[in-house]
Amino acid sequence: MLSDPKAATQSDAPLDVPLETVWSILEAANELGDTNTVDACRRVIDANLRGDAPGQPDLAAIAAFFA
């Protein structure tokens, strides 16, 4: 039986990205026309405003912006 995907996500070590950094990345990605990163940043910001944990794929997309 497969484990609960939400439980697996919560047990992973989260990428701790300060919200100020996410806003900066959002601005830079918007200027560069990187719609995937813009969308990921918006989802992370929205999750933060709701008090939810951001999705790991969105955090990975934000981290990949620096690669």
Rank of each mutant, 00 (worst) to 15 (best):
A67I: 14
T9M: 07
D4I: 13
A47F: 06
T37L: 01
M1H: 11
V38L: 00
A63H: 09
E31W: 00
T37A: 04
F66C: 03
L2K: 11
N36P: 02
F65E: 05
T37M: 01
R43F: 03
D12C: 08
A60K: 11
V22G: 09
N48Q: 09
N36L: 13
E31Q: 05
P5A: 03
D52G: 01
V38R: 01
T35E: 11
F66A: 12
D12L: 14
S11N: 03
D16K: 06
I45N: 09
A63C: 08
N36Y: 07
M1L: 11
D4Y: 04
E31L: 07
D16S: 06
L49A: 12
N48D: 08
D46S: 14
E31R: 09
D58T: 07
V38F: 00
W23Y: 13
P54L: 01
T37C: 11
A28H: 07
P14W: 01
Q10M: 14
A47D: 14
E27K: 15
L15V: 09
P5Y: 05
A53T: 05
D34S: 03
R42I: 06
D52L: 10
S11G: 01
L19N: 04
A60E: 13
D4V: 10
D58C: 09
S24H: 12
D16M: 03
D46P: 00
T35R: 10
S24E: 15
R50V: 00
Q56N: 13
A53S: 08
A61C: 11
A47R: 03
A47L: 04
S3Y: 09
A7C: 03
T9A: 12
A8C: 09
V17P: 00
S11D: 05
L15Q: 08
F65G: 03
P18F: 08
A40L: 02
N36A: 14
A63D: 12
L26I: 00
L15T: 06
T35W: 06
L19D: 10
E27V: 11
P54I: 00
R43V: 02
C41T: 13
L15E: 07
V44D: 03
I45V: 12
A64R: 05
F66W: 04
A13Q: 15
A61R: 12
A47P: 12
L15S: 04
L2C: 08
A64E: 11
A40S: 13
A47Y: 06
D46I: 06
E20N: 06
D58Y: 06
P54R: 00
R43N: 10
W23T: 08
T21A: 08
I45A: 08
Q10L: 15
F65L: 06
A53C: 00
L2S: 13
D12S: 09
A8I: 10
C41H: 09
L26F: 12
A67Y: 10
G51F: 02
S24M: 12
Q10K: 15
Q10C: 07
N48L: 03
I25A: 04
S3F: 10
L2R: 13
G55L: 13
G55E: 13
L19R: 08
A40R: 04
A8E: 15
P14A: 04
D39M: 12
T37H: 02
A67K: 14
V22E: 07
P54F: 01
Q56E: 10
N48V: 03
I62V: 04
E31I: 02
I62N: 02
W23H: 14
V44G: 01
S3W: 09
P54S: 02
P5L: 02
I45F: 06
E20I: 02
